[in-house]
Design a protein around this nucleic acid. Structure first.
Length: 118
RNA sequence: AGAGAGGGACGGGUGGUCACAGGUAGAUUACCUGAGGAAAGUCCGGACUCCAUGGGAUGGGAUGCUGGGUAACACCCAGAGGGAGUGAUCCCUGGACAGGACCAUAGAGACUUCACACCGCCCGUAGAAGGGCAAGGGUGGAAAGGCGAGGUAAGAGCUCACCAGCAUCGGAGUAAUCCGAUGGCUCGGUAACCCCCAUCCGGAGCAAGGCCAAGCAGGGUUUGGGUGAUCCCGCCCUACAAACCCGGGUAGGCCGCUUGAGAGGAAUGGUGAACAUUCCUCCCAGAUAGAUGACCACCGAUCACAGAAUCCGGCUUAUAGUCCCUCUCUGCUU
């Protein structure tokens, strides 16, 4: 109930899983994020964060990926279960990234992710 | 105190709540560890792995004052010469008498066994003609040793002193080079143009390469070769090697993967050097869709550049701020 952990099993790891999400998945978009998701037949979610090299230098790419993972970890109990999802930060985010705080990213993601499965 | 030169250290801290990666332990839990000085650019140099294997010639590439250090280097240390600065200090570095090529514009003339003569100077003459000359002016990045004196019709290493450069001899130094003597007076620059000399260099890269598991299905054509700059010789394989076509199967796990030219300290050698040797202590990230994050509190007082991917040694570039050491100049006080 109060499980905030994010172990390896709850992450997408194999090429065929990625292919399945890209081929069969549905897409949700906001100005700053794209989310692709598909049902996985399990009783929990698996996620991956993909940051394109265009986003910025390695330091910033790491930072945005960690923020997204952290945000997902703290809100995952409030989301629908049984999906594989891929979260992609969009180019618009990289342009204003330096001025943002973690909380802004968290808000953005929550408003997007709660629409999954409805 | 101010201005400056060289070098070094750190680059938020502590506590708490969640979360991740690795390791250890009798193991759904504890404990420990967890990015950088540049992790970066991928510019050099190695280790390591595979290409069956050795030698020679040619070609290509890299480096470039001297000596030392190193596994090696384009790095480091010490020294030499030249240049800049009052100084601490900083910057530059093979050869232009082996040869070739080029030196725009300007200028009379740009490297040539009388270099040239535009304005000039001198002799000559009524004035010319005809001779002699290169000091001064002018052009240029550079004008054929410089400067002074003698000399002369005017001039000229024509003669002489000093300076620069060249050659020979002697001395000091491992050497670059320096010092001294003598001689004949003396032909620029560019080698990030070809080139010459000396030294070094095979290719590809951890997605290297290897093991296990699973799985299928092999067949055909061409070439005669197979050592990836080329050629030659030797040797090995040809049950091989390469290319292409048709058809099929994997793309999961483990190793490589972090103990290493390792870090800290001491002694000795070395130039109070780079560095080497010996001894003692320590283990300090190893992910694989890729671990370091988020929040709260307090303090310093707002926090730069920025994230490991086989591992080391360098170089270069980016960097808020804090602290330390050595030295120079100027001013003031004693």
């Amino acid at each position: 109930m109060n499980d905030f952990s994010l172990p390896r099993a709850e992450r997408l790891r194999h090429t065929k899983d990625f292919d399945r999400v890209f081929r069969q998945g549905k897409v949700l978009q906001s100005d700053f994020f794209t989310v692709m998701f598909v049902e996985n037949g399990l009783d929990y979610n698996r996620i991956a964060v993909m940051v394109k090299k265009k986003f910025g230098k390695a330091h910033d790419r790491n930072k945005v990926r960690r923020w997204v993972k952290e945000a997902y970890r703290t809100m995952k109990n409030e989301l629908a279960k049984g999906f594989d999802l891929i979260i992609l930060p969009r180019k618009a985010l990289s342009e204003v990234f330096e001025k943002l705080s973690y909380f802004f990213v968290q808000e953005e993601l929550y408003s997007l992710l709660k629409r999954i499965g409805k």
